[in-house]
């Protein structure tokens, strides 16, 4: 078996060197690479345990898209997308992907972490052709490249966030599906509460050029909670253990 290496692919997470240095074992989703898990020798603690208490995971190569424009919500609904009832809320679609409403004219769509959803790519292509044909006032946003996508998981996550973010993200104040467009470690970011299984979890998307900076800041902040990076396998286990 050949070892998978992210440089075999064309799209590379800004963090892939950090993953390699951390003994990452990669897996392929579509044509892109994500960290399955890290090979940490005889470390007793499983990544699943880690993810339940305090962990961070890089999902930047998973698919996501966005639509903006006066007609975007109406067009999305015409495509069968279930819309959140107000801005700064996100809801899960029947096929597993997550639709986040960032304003009255802007949607962000994240594939489910098991990457079973095909809606993301399909919608992207559809929006462009629909718009060209009859001005739907719906414009595609390259969310897969404008923002990184990290998951922060575990029951210590809110406490950790309070060291880097001025919005109260504690679970009883920041409900499932809530969105905060805010500053995290002085970097603009979109924070979405999206629990994985029963585990308190957040997706955080920041300007992709600042990915490494934010990753390092979050790792530093989670040090006192014994947090560490985990691969997507641990997140899949969180979802499965529901």
């Amino acid at each position: 078996m050949t070892t998978l290496d992210p440089t075999m692919g064309m799209r590379r997470s800004q963090l892939y060197r950090r993953h390699i240095n951390n003994n990452a074992v990669f897996k392929k989703t579509g044509s892109d690479f994500v960290v399955s898990h890290y090979d940490n020798g005889n470390n007793q603690r499983t990544e699943l345990d880690q993810a339940r208490s305090m962990a961070i995971c890089d999902l930047s190569t998973l698919s996501r898209t966005g639509f903006k424009g006066a007609g975007a919500p109406i067009w999305a609904e015409s495509q069968g997308v279930k819309l959140p009832d107000r801005a700064n809320r996100a809801i899960v679609q029947p096929d597993g992907c997550l639709v986040a409403k960032l304003s009255d004219q802007e949607l962000l769509i994240l594939s489910d972490i098991l990457a079973k959803s095909h809606q993301v790519t399909a919608l992207g292509e559809q929006s462009t052709s629909d718009h060209l044909e009859n001005d739907t006032q719906t414009y595609l946003l390259p969310r897969g490249d404008s923002h990184c996508w990290l998951a922060v998981t575990g029951n210590q996550a809110a406490e950790m966030f309070s060291k880097v973010c001025g919005v109260d993200l504690r679970s009883h104040k920041f409900a499932l599906g809530n969105i905060a467009q805010t500053s995290v470690a002085k970097t603009n970011a979109i924070v979405i509460r999206q629990d994985l299984g029963q585990t308190l979890s957040y997706f955080i998307l920041c300007d992709i050029s600042a990915t490494e900076f934010l990753w390092d800041c979050l790792l530093d902040a989670m040090q006192e909670y014994a947090g560490s990076p985990v691969g997507i396998r641990a997140l899949e286990q969180l979802v499965a253990s529901q």
Partner: peptide, 11 residues
């Protein structure tokens, strides 16, 4: 009006 109450540094 869109995001609610925030630190002044966010503006």
């Amino acid at each position: 009006p869109l995001n609610g109450s925030r630190n002044i540094a966010e503006f």
